[in-house]
Design a protein around this nucleic acid. Structure first.
Lengths: 195, 195
DNA sequence: CGCGTACCATACCGGCCGGTATGGACAAGT
DNA sequence: ACTTGTCCATACCGGCCGGTATGGTACGCG
Protein backbone atom coordinates (compact mmCIF):
# COMPACT_ATOMS: atom_id res chain seq x y z
CA UNK A 1 0.00 0.00 0.00
CA UNK A 2 2.82 2.49 0.60
CA UNK A 3 4.05 1.71 -2.90
CA UNK A 4 0.57 2.22 -4.24
CA UNK A 5 0.31 5.58 -2.54
CA UNK A 6 3.68 6.59 -3.94
CA UNK A 7 2.49 5.59 -7.39
CA UNK A 8 -0.72 7.57 -7.03
CA UNK A 9 1.19 10.53 -5.69
CA UNK A 10 3.54 10.47 -8.65
CA UNK A 11 0.66 10.26 -11.10
CA UNK A 12 -1.27 13.12 -9.57
CA UNK A 13 1.81 15.27 -9.07
CA UNK A 14 2.81 14.74 -12.68
CA UNK A 15 -0.61 15.67 -13.94
CA UNK A 16 -1.40 18.76 -11.91
CA UNK A 17 1.78 19.81 -10.20
CA UNK A 18 2.78 19.06 -6.64
CA UNK A 19 1.48 22.29 -5.16
CA UNK A 20 -1.92 21.85 -6.78
CA UNK A 21 -2.51 18.36 -5.47
CA UNK A 22 -3.89 17.85 -1.97
CA UNK A 23 -3.35 14.73 0.06
CA UNK A 24 -7.07 14.05 -0.18
CA UNK A 25 -6.75 13.82 -3.94
CA UNK A 26 -3.79 11.46 -3.74
CA UNK A 27 -5.59 9.26 -1.26
CA UNK A 28 -8.74 9.31 -3.34
CA UNK A 29 -6.79 8.30 -6.43
CA UNK A 30 -5.35 5.37 -4.51
CA UNK A 31 -8.79 4.35 -3.27
CA UNK A 32 -8.22 5.30 0.36
CA UNK A 33 -8.49 8.42 2.49
CA UNK A 34 -6.07 10.82 4.08
CA UNK A 35 -6.04 8.86 7.31
CA UNK A 36 -4.28 6.04 5.51
CA UNK A 37 -1.77 8.42 3.95
CA UNK A 38 -0.78 9.78 7.32
CA UNK A 39 -0.45 6.29 8.65
CA UNK A 40 2.20 5.36 6.09
CA UNK A 41 3.85 8.78 5.66
CA UNK A 42 4.39 11.30 8.33
CA UNK A 43 4.05 14.36 6.09
CA UNK A 44 3.47 15.48 2.54
CA UNK A 45 7.20 15.88 2.09
CA UNK A 46 7.73 12.23 2.86
CA UNK A 47 5.17 11.31 0.24
CA UNK A 48 6.90 13.52 -2.29
CA UNK A 49 10.20 11.79 -1.60
CA UNK A 50 8.51 8.43 -2.02
CA UNK A 51 7.12 9.60 -5.35
CA UNK A 52 10.65 10.57 -6.36
CA UNK A 53 11.99 7.13 -5.53
CA UNK A 54 9.16 5.67 -7.56
CA UNK A 55 10.20 7.87 -10.46
CA UNK A 56 13.87 6.91 -10.17
CA UNK A 57 13.11 3.22 -10.19
CA UNK A 58 10.71 3.46 -13.09
CA UNK A 59 13.13 5.45 -15.17
CA UNK A 60 15.94 2.97 -14.66
CA UNK A 61 13.68 0.05 -15.37
CA UNK A 62 12.37 1.51 -18.62
CA UNK A 63 15.79 2.66 -19.73
CA UNK A 64 17.30 -0.76 -19.28
CA UNK A 65 14.36 -2.36 -21.02
CA UNK A 66 14.87 0.00 -23.92
CA UNK A 67 18.43 -1.05 -24.64
CA UNK A 68 18.12 -4.68 -23.56
CA UNK A 69 17.11 -6.18 -26.93
CA UNK A 70 20.06 -4.61 -28.76
CA UNK A 71 23.62 -5.85 -28.64
CA UNK A 72 25.58 -3.47 -30.81
CA UNK A 73 27.18 -0.89 -28.46
CA UNK A 74 26.63 2.11 -30.71
CA UNK A 75 23.02 1.15 -31.37
CA UNK A 76 22.45 0.78 -27.65
CA UNK A 77 23.77 4.26 -27.07
CA UNK A 78 21.69 5.70 -29.86
CA UNK A 79 18.58 3.94 -28.61
CA UNK A 80 19.08 5.30 -25.12
CA UNK A 81 19.62 8.80 -26.45
CA UNK A 82 16.57 8.60 -28.64
CA UNK A 83 14.43 7.60 -25.73
CA UNK A 84 15.80 10.37 -23.52
CA UNK A 85 15.19 12.94 -26.19
CA UNK A 86 11.70 11.68 -26.93
CA UNK A 87 10.73 11.95 -23.29
CA UNK A 88 12.09 15.47 -23.13
CA UNK A 89 10.16 16.45 -26.22
CA UNK A 90 6.85 14.69 -25.69
CA UNK A 91 6.34 13.58 -22.12
CA UNK A 92 4.59 16.54 -20.60
CA UNK A 93 3.87 14.83 -17.31
CA UNK A 94 7.55 14.14 -16.93
CA UNK A 95 8.19 17.83 -17.41
CA UNK A 96 5.68 18.80 -14.77
CA UNK A 97 7.11 16.43 -12.21
CA UNK A 98 10.76 17.20 -12.81
CA UNK A 99 10.19 20.96 -12.81
CA UNK A 100 8.44 20.79 -9.48
CA UNK A 101 11.13 18.60 -8.00
CA UNK A 102 13.79 20.99 -9.20
CA UNK A 103 12.00 23.86 -7.52
CA UNK A 104 11.71 21.83 -4.36
CA UNK A 105 15.37 20.89 -4.50
CA UNK A 106 16.28 24.51 -4.06
CA UNK A 107 14.91 24.52 -0.54
CA UNK A 108 14.93 20.90 0.57
CA UNK A 109 18.47 19.48 0.81
CA UNK A 110 17.19 15.93 1.10
CA UNK A 111 15.25 16.14 -2.15
CA UNK A 112 18.25 17.72 -3.78
CA UNK A 113 20.53 14.99 -2.60
CA UNK A 114 18.19 12.32 -3.89
CA UNK A 115 17.93 13.87 -7.31
CA UNK A 116 21.68 14.36 -7.41
CA UNK A 117 22.23 10.66 -6.81
CA UNK A 118 19.73 9.91 -9.53
CA UNK A 119 21.66 12.07 -11.94
CA UNK A 120 24.86 10.34 -10.95
CA UNK A 121 23.34 7.01 -11.82
CA UNK A 122 22.14 8.33 -15.17
CA UNK A 123 25.63 9.61 -15.88
CA UNK A 124 27.12 6.25 -15.00
CA UNK A 125 24.58 4.61 -17.27
CA UNK A 126 25.61 6.73 -20.22
CA UNK A 127 29.28 6.49 -19.35
CA UNK A 128 28.96 2.72 -19.60
CA UNK A 129 27.31 2.95 -22.99
CA UNK A 130 29.84 5.41 -24.32
CA UNK A 131 32.84 3.45 -23.12
CA UNK A 132 31.41 0.27 -24.57
CA UNK A 133 31.00 1.97 -27.91
CA UNK A 134 34.50 3.38 -27.67
CA UNK A 135 35.98 -0.01 -26.83
CA UNK A 136 34.31 -1.55 -29.84
CA UNK A 137 36.02 1.06 -31.98
CA UNK A 138 32.79 2.59 -33.20
CA UNK A 139 33.60 6.00 -31.83
CA UNK A 140 36.59 7.80 -30.52
CA UNK A 141 36.45 10.18 -27.65
CA UNK A 142 39.06 12.21 -25.86
CA UNK A 143 37.47 12.96 -22.52
CA UNK A 144 34.44 10.72 -21.96
CA UNK A 145 33.37 12.18 -18.64
CA UNK A 146 33.41 15.69 -19.94
CA UNK A 147 31.62 14.78 -23.13
CA UNK A 148 28.91 12.88 -21.28
CA UNK A 149 28.40 15.76 -18.88
CA UNK A 150 28.03 18.19 -21.74
CA UNK A 151 25.59 15.87 -23.45
CA UNK A 152 23.49 15.47 -20.33
CA UNK A 153 23.38 19.22 -19.92
CA UNK A 154 22.15 19.58 -23.47
CA UNK A 155 19.45 16.98 -22.86
CA UNK A 156 18.09 18.91 -19.92
CA UNK A 157 18.19 22.05 -22.00
CA UNK A 158 16.15 20.32 -24.66
CA UNK A 159 13.45 19.59 -22.15
CA UNK A 160 13.21 23.29 -21.47
CA UNK A 161 13.31 24.31 -25.11
CA UNK A 162 10.48 21.90 -25.81
CA UNK A 163 8.38 23.77 -23.30
CA UNK A 164 8.71 27.08 -25.06
CA UNK A 165 9.03 25.89 -28.64
CA UNK A 166 6.53 23.07 -29.09
CA UNK A 167 7.24 23.12 -32.81
CA UNK A 168 10.50 21.25 -32.22
CA UNK A 169 8.57 18.23 -30.97
CA UNK A 170 8.55 16.43 -34.31
CA UNK A 171 10.14 13.10 -35.22
CA UNK A 172 12.42 14.91 -37.67
CA UNK A 173 13.70 17.27 -35.01
CA UNK A 174 14.07 14.33 -32.69
CA UNK A 175 16.49 12.67 -35.08
CA UNK A 176 18.36 15.90 -35.60
CA UNK A 177 18.79 16.35 -31.87
CA UNK A 178 19.98 12.81 -31.38
CA UNK A 179 22.53 13.40 -34.11
CA UNK A 180 23.71 16.59 -32.42
CA UNK A 181 24.12 14.77 -29.13
CA UNK A 182 26.14 12.05 -30.79
CA UNK A 183 28.34 14.73 -32.27
CA UNK A 184 28.93 16.15 -28.82
CA UNK A 185 30.08 12.71 -27.79
CA UNK A 186 32.66 12.82 -30.54
CA UNK A 187 30.82 10.45 -32.81
CA UNK A 188 29.19 11.10 -36.17
CA UNK A 189 29.73 14.35 -38.03
CA UNK A 190 29.00 12.22 -41.06
CA UNK A 191 28.93 14.76 -43.88
CA UNK A 192 28.65 18.17 -42.27
CA UNK A 193 32.35 18.16 -41.46
CA UNK A 194 33.25 17.50 -45.07
CA UNK A 195 34.57 20.98 -45.76
CA UNK B 1 5.55 52.79 -8.11
CA UNK B 2 4.44 49.90 -10.31
CA UNK B 3 8.06 49.47 -11.36
CA UNK B 4 9.11 49.58 -7.73
CA UNK B 5 6.60 46.90 -6.84
CA UNK B 6 7.78 44.75 -9.72
CA UNK B 7 11.34 45.15 -8.49
CA UNK B 8 10.39 44.21 -4.94
CA UNK B 9 8.38 41.28 -6.20
CA UNK B 10 11.32 40.02 -8.23
CA UNK B 11 13.66 40.37 -5.27
CA UNK B 12 11.39 38.55 -2.85
CA UNK B 13 10.46 35.87 -5.36
CA UNK B 14 14.11 35.25 -6.13
CA UNK B 15 14.98 34.95 -2.48
CA UNK B 16 12.22 32.74 -1.17
CA UNK B 17 10.36 31.35 -4.15
CA UNK B 18 7.15 32.66 -5.60
CA UNK B 19 4.85 30.33 -3.70
CA UNK B 20 6.45 31.21 -0.38
CA UNK B 21 6.05 34.94 -0.77
CA UNK B 22 2.76 36.61 0.11
CA UNK B 23 1.61 39.88 -1.35
CA UNK B 24 1.90 41.40 2.09
CA UNK B 25 5.60 40.63 2.09
CA UNK B 26 6.12 42.12 -1.35
CA UNK B 27 4.22 45.26 -0.37
CA UNK B 28 6.13 45.52 2.89
CA UNK B 29 9.44 45.21 1.05
CA UNK B 30 8.38 48.05 -1.22
CA UNK B 31 7.33 50.17 1.74
CA UNK B 32 3.61 50.02 1.09
CA UNK B 33 0.73 47.67 1.88
CA UNK B 34 -1.35 45.21 -0.03
CA UNK B 35 -3.95 47.82 -0.86
CA UNK B 36 -1.42 49.56 -3.05
CA UNK B 37 -0.45 46.34 -4.75
CA UNK B 38 -4.03 45.63 -5.72
CA UNK B 39 -4.40 49.14 -7.00
CA UNK B 40 -1.60 48.68 -9.54
CA UNK B 41 -2.03 44.98 -10.27
CA UNK B 42 -5.26 43.13 -10.43
CA UNK B 43 -3.90 39.81 -9.15
CA UNK B 44 -0.77 38.05 -8.00
CA UNK B 45 -0.34 36.62 -11.48
CA UNK B 46 -0.12 40.10 -12.91
CA UNK B 47 2.55 40.97 -10.42
CA UNK B 48 4.49 37.85 -11.33
CA UNK B 49 4.36 38.79 -14.98
CA UNK B 50 5.57 42.28 -14.13
CA UNK B 51 8.45 40.73 -12.21
CA UNK B 52 9.27 38.69 -15.30
CA UNK B 53 9.38 41.76 -17.48
CA UNK B 54 11.65 43.36 -14.92
CA UNK B 55 13.91 40.33 -15.15
CA UNK B 56 13.97 40.35 -18.95
CA UNK B 57 14.90 44.00 -19.11
CA UNK B 58 17.59 43.68 -16.47
CA UNK B 59 19.14 40.70 -18.16
CA UNK B 60 19.35 42.44 -21.52
CA UNK B 61 20.73 45.57 -19.99
CA UNK B 62 23.47 43.77 -18.08
CA UNK B 63 24.32 41.55 -21.02
CA UNK B 64 24.78 44.46 -23.35
CA UNK B 65 26.82 46.31 -20.75
CA UNK B 66 29.04 43.25 -20.44
CA UNK B 67 30.07 43.16 -24.07
CA UNK B 68 29.94 46.89 -24.74
CA UNK B 69 33.56 47.75 -23.85
CA UNK B 70 34.98 45.09 -26.17
CA UNK B 71 35.25 45.37 -29.94
CA UNK B 72 36.79 42.13 -31.07
CA UNK B 73 33.92 39.84 -32.17
CA UNK B 74 35.31 36.64 -30.72
CA UNK B 75 36.12 38.30 -27.41
CA UNK B 76 32.59 39.69 -27.26
CA UNK B 77 31.18 36.22 -27.73
CA UNK B 78 33.46 34.75 -25.14
CA UNK B 79 32.63 37.49 -22.66
CA UNK B 80 28.93 36.92 -23.10
CA UNK B 81 29.34 33.19 -22.67
CA UNK B 82 31.44 33.63 -19.58
CA UNK B 83 28.83 35.81 -18.01
CA UNK B 84 26.01 33.41 -18.84
CA UNK B 85 27.92 30.51 -17.39
CA UNK B 86 28.88 32.40 -14.28
CA UNK B 87 25.27 33.28 -13.58
CA UNK B 88 24.24 29.68 -14.05
CA UNK B 89 26.93 28.51 -11.67
CA UNK B 90 26.80 31.12 -8.95
CA UNK B 91 23.62 33.17 -9.02
CA UNK B 92 21.35 31.20 -6.73
CA UNK B 93 18.59 33.77 -6.73
CA UNK B 94 18.49 33.58 -10.49
CA UNK B 95 18.02 29.84 -10.18
CA UNK B 96 15.16 30.21 -7.76
CA UNK B 97 13.33 32.68 -9.93
CA UNK B 98 13.80 30.88 -13.22
CA UNK B 99 12.81 27.53 -11.78
CA UNK B 100 9.60 28.92 -10.40
CA UNK B 101 8.81 30.65 -13.66
CA UNK B 102 9.40 27.43 -15.56
CA UNK B 103 7.00 25.61 -13.30
CA UNK B 104 4.46 28.35 -13.77
CA UNK B 105 4.92 28.26 -17.53
CA UNK B 106 3.60 24.74 -17.57
CA UNK B 107 0.17 25.95 -16.58
CA UNK B 108 0.03 29.60 -17.55
CA UNK B 109 0.25 30.08 -21.33
CA UNK B 110 0.85 33.80 -20.97
CA UNK B 111 3.89 33.32 -18.76
CA UNK B 112 5.12 30.66 -21.15
CA UNK B 113 4.73 32.96 -24.11
CA UNK B 114 6.61 35.75 -22.37
CA UNK B 115 9.51 33.51 -21.45
CA UNK B 116 9.55 32.07 -24.94
CA UNK B 117 9.94 35.54 -26.41
CA UNK B 118 12.71 36.23 -23.95
CA UNK B 119 14.51 33.12 -25.10
CA UNK B 120 14.08 34.18 -28.70
CA UNK B 121 15.74 37.47 -27.94
CA UNK B 122 18.60 35.71 -26.19
CA UNK B 123 19.04 33.47 -29.19
CA UNK B 124 19.09 36.45 -31.51
CA UNK B 125 21.64 38.08 -29.26
CA UNK B 126 23.97 35.11 -29.50
CA UNK B 127 23.26 34.62 -33.19
CA UNK B 128 24.47 38.16 -33.78
CA UNK B 129 27.66 37.55 -31.83
CA UNK B 130 28.36 34.28 -33.58
CA UNK B 131 27.75 35.65 -37.04
CA UNK B 132 29.94 38.63 -36.32
CA UNK B 133 32.72 36.31 -35.22
CA UNK B 134 32.19 34.16 -38.29
CA UNK B 135 32.27 37.17 -40.62
CA UNK B 136 35.54 38.30 -39.13
CA UNK B 137 36.97 34.92 -39.99
CA UNK B 138 37.71 34.01 -36.38
CA UNK B 139 35.53 30.93 -36.46
CA UNK B 140 33.88 28.80 -39.04
CA UNK B 141 30.48 27.29 -38.55
CA UNK B 142 28.27 25.15 -40.73
CA UNK B 143 24.81 25.69 -39.28
CA UNK B 144 24.82 28.70 -36.92
CA UNK B 145 21.20 28.41 -35.82
CA UNK B 146 21.54 24.80 -34.90
CA UNK B 147 24.83 25.33 -33.11
CA UNK B 148 23.48 28.25 -31.12
CA UNK B 149 20.41 26.27 -30.12
CA UNK B 150 22.55 23.40 -28.93
CA UNK B 151 24.75 25.78 -26.98
CA UNK B 152 21.79 27.44 -25.31
CA UNK B 153 20.42 24.05 -24.34
CA UNK B 154 23.73 23.18 -22.76
CA UNK B 155 23.75 26.44 -20.83
CA UNK B 156 20.40 25.70 -19.29
CA UNK B 157 21.58 22.24 -18.44
CA UNK B 158 24.55 23.73 -16.67
CA UNK B 159 22.25 25.72 -14.45
CA UNK B 160 20.65 22.47 -13.38
CA UNK B 161 23.90 20.62 -12.91
CA UNK B 162 25.15 23.44 -10.71
CA UNK B 163 22.20 22.82 -8.42
CA UNK B 164 23.06 19.22 -7.79
CA UNK B 165 26.83 19.39 -8.09
CA UNK B 166 27.93 22.55 -6.32
CA UNK B 167 31.52 21.45 -6.67
CA UNK B 168 31.50 22.49 -10.33
CA UNK B 169 31.03 26.11 -9.32
CA UNK B 170 34.72 27.00 -9.46
CA UNK B 171 36.48 29.47 -11.72
CA UNK B 172 38.43 26.63 -13.28
CA UNK B 173 35.29 24.72 -14.17
CA UNK B 174 33.81 27.93 -15.44
CA UNK B 175 36.60 28.28 -17.97
CA UNK B 176 36.31 24.66 -18.95
CA UNK B 177 32.61 25.03 -19.58
CA UNK B 178 33.06 28.15 -21.63
CA UNK B 179 35.60 26.29 -23.71
CA UNK B 180 33.18 23.43 -24.23
CA UNK B 181 30.48 25.81 -25.35
CA UNK B 182 32.83 27.44 -27.82
CA UNK B 183 33.61 24.01 -29.18
CA UNK B 184 29.93 23.37 -29.71
CA UNK B 185 29.83 26.54 -31.72
CA UNK B 186 32.51 25.13 -33.99
CA UNK B 187 35.26 27.26 -32.61
CA UNK B 188 38.31 26.22 -30.63
CA UNK B 189 39.22 22.54 -30.39
CA UNK B 190 42.71 23.91 -29.96
CA UNK B 191 44.69 20.71 -29.59
CA UNK B 192 42.22 17.97 -28.89
CA UNK B 193 41.28 17.71 -32.56
CA UNK B 194 44.87 17.20 -33.54
CA UNK B 195 44.48 13.52 -34.39
C1' DC C 1 -13.18 -14.96 24.33
C1' DG C 2 -10.65 -10.97 25.68
C1' DC C 3 -7.04 -8.05 24.01
C1' DG C 4 -3.70 -5.72 21.60
C1' DT C 5 -2.22 -4.13 17.17
C1' DA C 6 -2.16 -2.79 12.37
C1' DC C 7 -4.69 -0.30 9.18
C1' DC C 8 -7.99 2.87 7.66
C1' DA C 9 -12.28 6.20 7.77
C1' DT C 10 -14.43 10.38 9.66
C1' DA C 11 -14.60 14.67 11.49
C1' DC C 12 -12.52 18.61 12.71
C1' DC C 13 -9.14 22.32 13.63
C1' DG C 14 -6.40 26.31 12.52
C1' DG C 15 -3.30 29.00 9.93
C1' DC C 16 -2.14 31.13 5.84
C1' DC C 17 -3.04 34.07 2.08
C1' DG C 18 -5.44 35.82 -2.13
C1' DG C 19 -8.82 38.83 -2.77
C1' DT C 20 -12.32 42.67 -1.44
C1' DA C 21 -14.67 46.45 0.76
C1' DT C 22 -14.15 50.68 2.67
C1' DG C 23 -12.35 54.89 4.07
C1' DG C 24 -8.97 58.49 4.24
C1' DA C 25 -5.21 61.76 2.44
C1' DC C 26 -4.07 64.80 -1.09
C1' DA C 27 -3.87 67.16 -5.33
C1' DA C 28 -6.10 69.29 -9.35
C1' DG C 29 -9.76 71.28 -11.70
C1' DT C 30 -13.95 74.78 -11.79
C1' DA D 1 -15.31 75.40 -1.29
C1' DC D 2 -16.86 71.47 -3.42
C1' DT D 3 -16.18 67.78 -6.31
C1' DT D 4 -13.52 64.31 -8.57
C1' DG D 5 -9.97 61.17 -9.26
C1' DT D 6 -5.64 59.01 -7.74
C1' DC D 7 -3.24 56.44 -4.59
C1' DC D 8 -2.76 53.98 -0.51
C1' DA D 9 -3.91 51.99 4.45
C1' DT D 10 -6.93 49.14 7.34
C1' DA D 11 -9.83 45.62 8.30
C1' DC D 12 -11.95 41.69 7.12
C1' DC D 13 -13.69 37.56 4.67
C1' DG D 14 -13.52 32.85 3.11
C1' DG D 15 -11.59 28.89 1.06
C1' DC D 16 -8.16 25.61 0.86
C1' DC D 17 -5.33 22.16 2.83
C1' DG D 18 -1.77 20.15 5.96
C1' DG D 19 -2.08 18.07 10.02
C1' DT D 20 -4.46 15.71 14.17
C1' DA D 21 -7.61 13.36 17.16
C1' DT D 22 -10.53 9.78 17.46
C1' DG D 23 -13.26 5.94 16.42
C1' DG D 24 -14.04 1.76 13.93
C1' DT D 25 -12.78 -2.89 11.76
C1' DA D 26 -10.28 -6.94 10.93
C1' DC D 27 -6.88 -10.05 12.27
C1' DG D 28 -3.62 -12.61 15.11
C1' DC D 29 -2.55 -14.56 19.60
C1' DG D 30 -2.75 -16.48 24.11
Amino acid sequence: MPARLAQSAFTMFSRHGIANVSLDQVASHAGVTKGSVYWHFKSKDELIKAACVHYYRNTHRQMNAEIAPVRDPLKRLERALRRSVRICLLDEENRVFTMDIWSLSLRDPEVRRGWGQFYDSVREFYMGLVQAAALSGQMKIDDPERAVNLMLEAIEGIKLRAMFEPQICSPREESEIVKSLLEILGCGKPAARAA
